[in-house]
């Protein structure tokens, strides 16, 4: 049972040996179709996983180093408390920069909910102060204590409460993508095993004759392994190609785009689908090899 011999035989091909197994059959078409369909699905699972990963990283990265202080105070005290907060922030280790949002910026934030003509100046809207942290971050509890003393109307929101579930959801989605890939691979292996077993069963006379004339198990198995591996490779190459094309034709992610418009590959991520056909071929190689040797063991 030389695996190296099988791989070598697979690469260089043995025209004479390949002829001993009949060419046609439903198992052949099934292998081709299953590999193609599974590769197509695998491209989408891969795209989902990679997109979810990018999203999780973006949310985690973008939100981890920013936080907001919401300052509610009587109009007369607003300016003074804003300065007090900014002063406290200036003196706080781990705060890289801090600034109060202008009225226009606050209006822009509220515009999606209240429309473009919102008179921010006339409404008791809290002043928002944006904080950018150093990579080391600051001591949130210590800052809260100081703000309570210096500016009682200030509330620190470090985004932890809503950032964590978002990042967790994206991470889960990424995991589901990889799990889908594993399931697709397992299903491919199962389908190819069934197809190989069907082919072996329908060629029982061929196996008997080959054993009778002195063919070794490895030789017989190789003829089947080569055929199924090549079919899986071909089917997966077509499926992965079509899947990648379908992903490429998805609408581009806009700045305000939601997750779905960002589904796809980015940069070197476009190389990932290239791994699918070889992976399908390796799966077919082992699935057929195991099925072939198992069947042959039933014959003397």
């Amino acid at each position: 049972m030389s695996v190296a011999g099988d791989i070598l035989g697979l690469l260089k091909g043995e025209a004479q040996a390949d002829r001993v197994v009949p060419r046609s059959g439903q198992a052949a078409r099934l292998t081709l179709a299953v590999s193609g369909a599974m590769a197509f699905l695998a491209v989408f699972a891969l795209a989902l996983s990679l997109a979810a990963g990018r999203l999780a990283d973006r949310w985690a990265g973008a939100l981890a180093q920013s936080s907001t202080i919401r300052l509610s105070a009587p109009e007369a005290e607003m300016e003074a408390q804003t300065w007090a907060v900014l002063t406290v922030l200036e003196q706080t280790p781990g705060v890289e920069s801090a600034r109060a949002l202008s009225d226009d910026e606050q209006r822009a934030l509220l515009e999606p909910w209240f429309g473009p003509d919102l008179p921010v100046a006339d409404l008791p809207v809290p002043r928002l102060i944006e904080i950018v942290e150093t990579p080391a971050g600051y001591d949130a509890e210590g800052l809260r204590a100081r703000l309570a003393a210096e500016a009682p109307g200030a509330v620190l929101d470090d985004h932890t409460r809503w950032r964590r579930p978002l990042v967790e959801a994206a991470d889960r989605l990424r995991l589901l993508g990889w799990l889908s890939l594993a399931l697709i691979l397992g299903s491919t292996a199962a389908m190819i095993t069934l197809a190989a077993q069907a082919a072996l069963a329908s060629n029982e006379q061929v196996l008997r004759v080959l054993r009778l004339v002195g063919a070794r198990d490895a030789y017989i198995a190789r003829a089947f392994v080569r055929r199924f591996t090549r079919r899986a490779l071909t089917g997966a190459a077509v499926g992965a190609g079509l899947g990648t094309l379908a992903i490429a034709l998805l609408p581009r992610a806009a700045a305000e785009g939601a997750f779905l418009t960002g589904l796809g590959f980015a940069g070197a991520g476009w190389l990932w689908p290239l791994a699918i056909p070889p992976l399908a071929a390796v799966t077919a190689f082992w699935a057929t090899r195991i099925a072939a040797f198992r069947t042959l063991r039933g014959l003397r």
Binding site: R19, V209, L212, R216
Partner: peptide, 28 residues
Amino acid sequence: RDRIALTRQRIGVVHQDCEFLDHLPIRD
């Protein structure tokens, strides 16, 4: 199993109902 295969290369067997690979010409 490999030794059996090698041994069979030294034995020619003819059956009453001879089985062949039906997809290949008789020469092959």
